[in-house]
């Protein structure tokens, strides 16, 4: 189930600023309280796919005392896609909640 939403989760992490792959996977783990503990390598096909779709951009950076890393940033298209993803998820979550009997009837 997580895989279906991985692209939106990655976009959401990058909303707070550019980051490299390791930092993104750490942020996903931290934000989910350890619930989303997916194989770390899974993030790279997603990053590549999002970059191919022009939702992310990337550049190589080398900090003064560090190793060379590819840093990803959200593009304008990526921000728009994230906003759409949030709306879609909100509708879906409300519908599931209603179906499971935990909330009001949907749509309200």
């Amino acid at each position: 189930m997580l895989k279906g939403h991985l692209d939106a989760i990655v976009l959401a992490v990058l909303e707070s600023g550019p980051a490299h792959g390791y930092a993104i996977i750490e942020a996903i783990r931290s934000r989910s309280g350890g619930t989303f503990d997916l194989p770390e390598g899974t993030i790279y096909p997603a990053l590549h796919r999002l970059e191919q779709a022009a939702l992310l951009s990337s550049t190589w950076t080398t900090p003064p005392n560090g190793r060379r890393r590819r840093v990803y940033a959200l593009t304008r298209n990526g921000s728009a896609r994230l906003a759409e993803g949030r709306k879609a998820w909100s509708r879906f979550a409300k519908a599931v909640d209603s179906s499971l009997g935990g909330g009001r009837a949907w749509p309200a």
Binding site: G21, E40, R70
Partner: peptide
């Protein structure tokens, strides 16, 4: 990927 994954 060789460079990126090695750094990770």
């Amino acid at each position: 990927m060789a460079d990126e994954v090695a750094a990770h």
